[in-house]
Amino acid sequence: MINVKQFKRTESKYIIRAEGLTKDYPVGEGHFRALSDINLTFSEGEFAGLVGPSGSGKTTLLNIIGSLDTPTSGSVAVLGREVSALTAKQSAFLRNRHIGFIFQSYNLLPVYTVYENVEFTLLLQKKNREERHKAVMEALDWVGLTEKKDARPAQLSGGESQRVAIARAMVKRPAIVLADEPSANLDAENSHHILQTMQQLNSELKTTFLFATHDEKVMQYLQRVISLRDGKIEKDTNS
């Protein structure tokens, strides 16, 4: 069993590797196949997107990579570790240290201020106050929200909320950021703003960004586009 304290990425050419990945959801007596025999790899620093219509399986794939869901068959290795073999504690550790999430509806903690929302993940890491403060202020600086650090999520616009979510995902300097429809609730200007921010962070910190989107505005920023349809890879611009 892996000791969570010793969860270190193993040497691997790929930061994410999916092999023969299949995911079925039970529907009545039968099942619905959300993903079918997916084989994919992502390297460090990629800015890639899973695109496709609703129900194509992009969010499911993102959730499995983020160890929020498990595959029915096949395997996914993140940072060289088989995700489905991790215990709940190890999965939590993986998400806390190495994976940042950005959601369509921001998912900010409503009773916390902007600062506290960003700080939360570092508190889970038991970082000391000084380290936390430095990292949080840096993350808020990346997204241009230092002046809003004391605001509550209810006082922010959609664009600002999503920028807080980006700061929260990036504050721990994760290896991977999984962004599920990050621009879906934003207008064009805010969408471009957050994408430019993410692009900049990708190039500066070499963080791997993986999007699930069907937004044209996002697609134009992606270095690599993987098209999914009915749970299968239709096209991968990398191959």
Binding site: G66, L68, A88, K89, S91, A92, F93, R95, N96, R97, F101, F103, S105, N107, L108, L109, P110, F120, T121, L124, Q125, R168
Partner: peptide, 16 residues
């Protein structure tokens, strides 16, 4: 529900 999911996504275990 979303908040619960968020806690888990941020690195808490469901038990926590």
């Amino acid at each position: 529900q979303k908040e619960i999911g968020t806690y888990v996504a941020l690195g808490m275990t469901p038990r926590e």
